[in-house]
């Protein structure tokens, strides 16, 4: 009876420990993959530029018709020459797959985890 009880406690401890390790690993790995995330600028379904989500700054895109701000791993539209400015009101996005669309200017700003492996340096 006593022995069975000890086993139960040990089992529970083991399961909790392993789950904790799993959760920690999950965050560590996810944190790492976030570093390689990109802001992709699409014009009519064609990639026009790509910014690292780590490159804080304000950037003119679409020949100055739109402007984005990247800060602390998030991105938002800060300027659009279109009348509705819905894209600006959408605010910040940060997660893989999220996007801001400026329909009048046919511009999509999307966040994507990307492969930053470089083959050559010039």
């Amino acid at each position: 009876m006593n022995r069975k009880h000890t086993t139960l406690v040990r089992d529970t401890l083991l399961i909790i420990t392993l789950l904790l390790i799993g959760i920690i690993l999950l965050f560590v790995l996810r944190g790492r993959s976030n570093e390689g995330s990109y802001v992709i600028i699409m014009y009519q379904n064609e990639e026009k530029a790509r910014f690292s989500l780590a490159s804080d700054g304000i950037y003119n895109i679409n020949n100055g018709k739109n402007r984005i701000e990247i800060l602390g791993g998030k991105v938002r539209m800060t300027y659009a020459d279109c009348p509705d400015e819905l894209c600006i009101r959408q605010g910040w996005i940060e997660y893989d797959g999220q996007s801001i669309i400026c329909l009048p200017n046919k511009i999509t700003v999307m966040v994507s985890g990307g492969d930053s492996l470089v083959d050559f340096v010039l």
């Binding site: 089992d11 083991l14 399961i15 392993l18 390790i21 799993g22 690993l25 790492r32 993959s33």
Partner: peptide, 23 residues
């Protein structure tokens, strides 16, 4: 037996996680 099964399951889960993150 149950304990072994749990350990195995967690290890498999971790292995899958790591594998999915590598190229």
């Amino acid at each position: 037996r149950f304990r072994r099964a749990v350990i195995l399951a967690v290890l498999l889960f971790l292995t899958f996680l790591i594998a999915s993150c590598s190229k």
